[in-house]
Write a protein that binds this DNA or RNA. Structure first.
Length: 561
RNA sequence: UGGCCUAUGGUGUAAUUGGCAACACAGCUGGUUUUGGUCCAGUCGUUCAAGGUUCGAGUCCUUGUAGGCCAACCA
């Protein structure tokens, strides 16, 4: 079969161009560089899939590098969580790197820059420097310390490093151009003093390099060939290259930074700062709450690595603004789970059904398909008896022709069992239906091959046998925000759009085969949706998270009326 | 008042680099189905605007319009 010519995204075009222009394929190397100050989210997943995907496509190594230059925000807990998430997605990094491993090299290079007269120690307050910075349309003013002698700079920088000064009293700045139209080139800060223990270097350092000074040099140290980041770093590219030009050795690979647009998912937020607020304010129950767009949250919700990778691949990568509807993510997980998840029966809103002509004290075990998508069908036994639960929504005393479910005097098929007919609705004093009395056709048993079993009845319902049913907890989730873009309303806080009903906990009844289901196992509750066993489950009580519901065309028909 | 980036159906991405605008999702219609699921078939609809170059423009040029980004001792 002829191979589909895969269309390339603009990032792949850049690499292909470089290869055509003589760049050695052996020198290709990528990296995924998270800051360990929070958990990875669906936006990072896109970046992970891009970089690690490139590594797979070009058979090139990909480093996992922690951009840990700000001890005020970073923690070891996050490092561990990030590694777990990347592994869970199924990717293997070549080297595990830390920007903090390069502190000495970065320091040495900074000294070189000072010696070349390209960096200086500034001793003003941050307010003073901000004032001198100018505005995009107005050039900046040079610092009074800009022309300190090399000797004085060297001495001061050394003493900064030695811890002789308070936090915030001095900084090292690159001497570039206070009149540049690019604000980042107006003598950017390279180092600040921060008397704060670092999760890896502890108190070895009290001066920490800034992002711009660190990132490109780290790429260079690791010999990363292509360094991809999001669009907001586009302006940093000029600085990235300026720094690189000052340390670059002709015989080595000079990394190339290119920018792509971050993927925005509707009805959620993905900035770590905002996610942290959801956690700290108790809106959710932690970073891995199934409502969170974090990778660990999606995992707990029941998303699979394959579905997330498929999603990333489907939305692609480009440079324009975007807002991707969550329904696409939901499609991706349904597509994957449809193939994988065993089918079971579970009733969420039980209504008692009594089959009046079925013998009491009798049970029988019926064959049920585990997954119709499987090539070699396997079956399990499901107990059937005189008293069952069906969904409340599946019975109406009367309904129009479009209602393919149980109504008085009409027949439906019980999945894998018999055809039943509703005879009578039993009500309480307030008129609520408490149970339905039905009769069954004993010859209509599924798979029996009798003419009665082959009769066509319009509806098929799922059910559980009451004496055999297992009670479980079900957690159903809705979107965390009621607005598609909660953080894009000027003057309004995204917290105003929190959906107050994003979690609904109910009890449900499931077939007994689920008794020994393990945390992390996926199931399709037939006619309802996909569910995963939550780690909160105990031997006494299983807890299921609803990953996503099945496509529901009945809901559309019903809503139209 | 400056600079940088972007603009293709409702959504997201393509287009052999100047040669019949395609794919997926969503929507709609029908078929199959012991899940109103899956699957299958069909259908809907697009190059921001105006000029220009060209046999030919989504692609190149000009002007305009709209949106995003840039002034943390954050990354």
């Amino acid at each position: 079969m002829a191979e589909e010519t895969k269309s390339l995204n603009f990032i792949e075009h850049i690499i292909e161009d470089d290869l055509e222009n003589g760049f050695d394929k052996q020198d290709l190397r990528f990296r995924f560089p998270p800051e360990p100050n929070g958990y990875l989210h669906i936006g990072h997943a896109s970046s992970i899939c891009l970089n690690f995907g490139l590594g797979l496509d070009y058979d090139a190594p990909v480093n996992l590098r922690f951009d840990d230059t700000n001890p005020a925000k970073e923690e070891k807990e996050y490092v561990e969580a990030i590694k777990r998430d990347v592994e869970w997605l199924g990717y293997k990094w070549d080297k595990e790197c830390y920007a903090s491993d390069y502190f000495q090299q970065l320091y040495d290079w900074a000294v070189e820059l000072i010696k070349k007269g390209k960096a200086y120690v500034d001793s003003q307050t941050s307010e003073e420097m901000a004032e001198q910075k100018g505005t995009p349309s107005q050039t900046g003013i040079e610092s009074p310390y800009r022309n300190r002698s090399v000797e004085e700079n060297l001495d001061l920088f050394q003493r900064m490093k030695n811890g002789e000064f308070e936090s915030g009293t001095h900084v090292l700045r690159a001497k570039i151009d206070m009149a540049s139209s690019n604000m980042l080139m107006r003598d950017p800060i390279m180092y600040r003093i921060l008397h704060k223990a670092h999760h890896r270097t502890n108190t070895d350092w009290c001066i920490y390099p800034m992002y711009d000074w660190t990132h490109g040099e780290s790429d260079y140290i690791e010999q990363v060939s292509h360094s991809f980041c999001t669009l907001e770093f586009a302006m940093h590219r000029e600085l990235y290259e300026w720094f690189l030009d000052n340390v670059y050795d002709e015989n080595k690979v000079k990394p190339k930074q290119r920018e792509f647009a971050r993927r925005n998912l509707s009805h959620t937020v993905v900035s770590k700062r905002k996610l942290l607020r959801l956690v700290e304010d108790g809106v959710v129950n932690g970073w891995d709450d199934p409502r969170m767009p974090t990778i660990s949250g999606l995992k707990r919700r029941g998303y699979t690595p394959e579905s997330i990778k498929k999603f990333a691949e489907t939305i692609g990568i480009a440079k324009r603004e975007n807002l991707i509807d969550v329904s696409l993510l939901e499609f991706c997980v349904r597509e994957d789970l449809n193939k994988k998840a065993p089918r079971v029966m579970g009733v969420l809103n039980p209504l008692k059904v009594v089959i009046t002509n079925y013998p009491e004290d009798t049970e029988e075990y019926l064959d049920a398909e585990n997954n119709p998508e499987e090539e070699n069908m396997t079956y399990r036994k499901v107990p059937f008896s005189r008293e069952l639960y069906i969904e409340q929504e599946d019975f109406r005393e009367e309904a129009n022709r479009k209602f393919f479910r149980l109504k008085l005097g009409k027949e439906v098929r019980l999945k894998n069992a018999y055809i039943i007919k509703a005879e009578k609705a039993i009500k309480d004093d307030e008129g609520n239906i408490t149970e339905v009395h039905c009769t069954y056709d004993p010859l209509s048993k599924s798979g029996s091959g009798t003419p009665e079993s082959q009769r066509k009845v319009k509806g098929t319902l799922h059910w559980v046998s009451i004496p055999h049913a297992k009670e479980v907890e079900v957690r159903e989730y809705d979107r965390l925000f009621t607005d598609p873009e909660p953080d894009r309303h000027e003057g309004k806080d995204f917290m105003e759009f929190i959906n107050p009903d994003s979690l609904r906990v109910t009890k449900a009844f499931v077939e007994p085969s689920l008794a020994d289901a393990k945390a992390g196992e996926h199931f399709q509750f037939q006619r309802i949706g996909y569910f995963i066993v939550d780690p909160d489950s105990t031997d006494e009580k299983l807890v299921f998270n609803k990953t996503v519901e099945l496509r529901d065309s009945w809901a559309k028909i019903d809503a139209k009326k």
